[in-house]
Design a protein around this nucleic acid. Sequence first.
DNA 1: TCAGAAATGTAGCATGTGCTACATTTACTG
DNA 2: CAGTAAATGTAGCACATGCTACATTTCTGA
Lengths: 141, 141
Amino acid sequence: MTKTTSSIRSGAFKATRKTHSNESAEDYTELVADLIEANGEARTVEVARHLGISHVTALRTIRRLQNEGFFETAKHKPIYLTAKGKKLAAYCKERHQTILQFLNLIGVPEKVAEVDAEGVEHHISKETLRALKEHISKFAE
Amino acid sequence: MTKTTSSIRSGAFKATRKTHSNESAEDYTELVADLIEANGEARTVEVARHLGISHVTALRTIRRLQNEGFFETAKHKPIYLTAKGKKLAAYCKERHQTILQFLNLIGVPEKVAEVDAEGVEHHISKETLRALKEHISKFAE
DNA sequence: TCAGAAATGTAGCATGTGCTACATTTACTG
DNA sequence: CAGTAAATGTAGCACATGCTACATTTCTGA
Ligand SMILES: [Mn+2]
Ligand SMILES: [Mn+2]
Ligand SMILES: [Mn+2]
Ligand SMILES: [Mn+2]
């Protein structure tokens, strides 16, 4: 008997891996935008503190994201968002909010909702985001 | 002016990183269980094909998961799930299904739903899963 | 102003996961 | 049962992200 090879759905796994490779960009830009709004500027140590990682890891990742065009920064200077970075941050922040709102709506405890939203957000496509929004308004009638 | 340090929510980021470190275990055990059900056995190449990665990467990861007690296997032999592995696979499969069902309910297109579910699932806590189920039954009245 | 604190940066290490190239073993098929 | 195809395994590379230890620069307050 030859193997049925049960369909092969590698596409979803490939997409998930691609999403993961973009997660830092999403979390870092969103966080940097928040810090700038809250403190007037974003500094590496502060990014590290909020992410719960060492300042060295934050430094290196910020440098990579600068090379990829999300940040602008110089030695011993604060971190600025490029237009590309601002756009990504704004999209992520809005998406993050929508997800939190949804989790809230269906009765997930606040603390848990915050954790789940932080992980889930990166995997929510534009289509699902739209569906979530529509569902929220429909359900909150 | 001293920095406001805008709350510090590093807990959610830490939890997300921990979740990621467990993702392979979840996807691999679920997939291996599926393959055993569909084909009678699970082989490394087949796992690799379904995940869309090289057989070498699959081999190495399966070995790690064996050391962590999810699989049992020997050279040139198929992959078996331990009790621990079976338990994880069953939980993940059920959760995966629930999420797909929910995405379907709110009108996300099939293909997109499959991709989103594959990524999102790992970040859905027991609390959110329960809330999702309740919401599904409430909404599908 | 200037000494100590805070921030930034470098060096070097680890782990997980991705790859190709090549070797060996097992399975299938004529 | 021999020869080929498929599966498995090894070696060795890359990259992202985590860490500590230590060096240097900048900021700050007495
Ligand atoms: Mn996040
Ligand atoms: Mn976020
Ligand atoms: Mn998955
Ligand atoms: Mn899954």
